[in-house]
């Protein structure tokens, strides 16, 4: 056990940074990239393991932080029928993984004018009639590397519940794995994006305090303060930032006021 922990600790060092440099004695595992076997250090993400193996990402890599949706991977494990999905920048390699990158999957994207669209379910249905080809097989949900309940939001759209669909699809990063597995040939993620745009523009309640503050900014209330800040040197700015008054963590709502109220 202690031996194992020791090995992990050794290998963990090489997993930091964008480039993996394999130190002496580090443990490697076999993975298959598009059918060819490579020995890569364990604990690396799929993306780093592939770079270690000599691949260079021209497409299919973006933020490397699990949010841009550019690097979806589909893989199987040895002796298992099941398909698995993940983001290459987030998923750690396992021995005998069979990997393929899906940087892009063709999907129908409708064009529309968000300024003139009628914010009702029928507008979405008319732009994406293939919605009604969904058979509820749930392959979309199984394929989602973000754990989004894709079938549930598609169902909500068919039922005309735009708000529910917008909330359910919120974590979508547009990687397209849902569309790659869809029996009804739906472009789920594009439909969901339209739904969230309609929800954000027409349905979601607007924050009154935000509207007021924008008005204040536009009326020039903060122009002088901003100008003053722009003219400050780096050291002065740093000092000001460090010494700023700050609301205590967990302070009950509406109980705290700064000493200096000139900017309120």
């Amino acid at each position: 056990m202690s031996n194992h922990e020791c090995e992990c600790a050794t290998v963990q060092q090489i997993a930091t940074g964008d480039r993996a440099i394999l130190p002496k004695g580090a443990k490697t595992i076999p993975v298959y990239v598009m059918g060819k076997k490579y020995e890569v250090p364990e604990t690396l993400t799929i993306m780093k393991a592939m770079e270690y193996a000599g691949f260079k990402f021209l497409r299919g890599a973006g933020c490397r932080g699990g949010i841009c949706g550019a690097c979806p991977t589909v893989y199987r494990k040895e002796g298992d029928y099941k398909l698995h999905f993940g983001l290459a920048c987030q998923t750690v390699v396992e021995p005998n993984m069979y990997l393929a990158q899906i940087p892009f999957y063709p999907a129908n994207r409708a064009s529309y004018d968000i300024e003139t669209i009628e914010p009702v379910a029928e507008s979405i249905h008319a732009l994406y009639p293939e919605l009604f080809r969904c058979v509820a097989c749930n392959n979309c949900t199984k394929a989602c590397p973000m754990g989004v309940q894709v079938l549930d939001y598609i169902s909500a759209i068919k039922q005309g519940d735009i708000a529910r669909a917008a909330h359910l699809s919120f974590d979508c990063i547009q990687c397209g794995m849902c569309a790659s597995r869809c029996m009804g040939e739906l472009p789920q993620y594009h439909i969901a994006q339209l739904v969230r745009r309609i929800y954000g523009k027409y349905i979601q309640p607007k924050a009154e305090h935000l509207r007021k503050r924008v008005e204040e900014i536009e009326s020039g209330k903060y122009d002088a303060t901003l100008e003053k800040l722009q003219k400050m040197g780096k050291d002065e700015l740093e000092k000001l930032y460090k010494e700023r008054e700050r609301e205590p963590d967990m302070a009950p709502l509406g109980t705290w006021m700064p000493q200096d109220t000139q900017y309120l």
């Binding site: 129908n108 029928e122 008319a126 080809r133 039922q159």
Partner: peptide
């Protein structure tokens, strides 16, 4: 489905669309 006029899709009950496509 892609060639259906928007007006037709908008007026159809969902069960008409689903059953027709199936």
């Amino acid at each position: 489905p892609s060639k259906m006029p928007a007006e037709t899709v908008k007026e159809m009950p969902q069960i008409a669309m689903v059953s027709c496509f199936r």
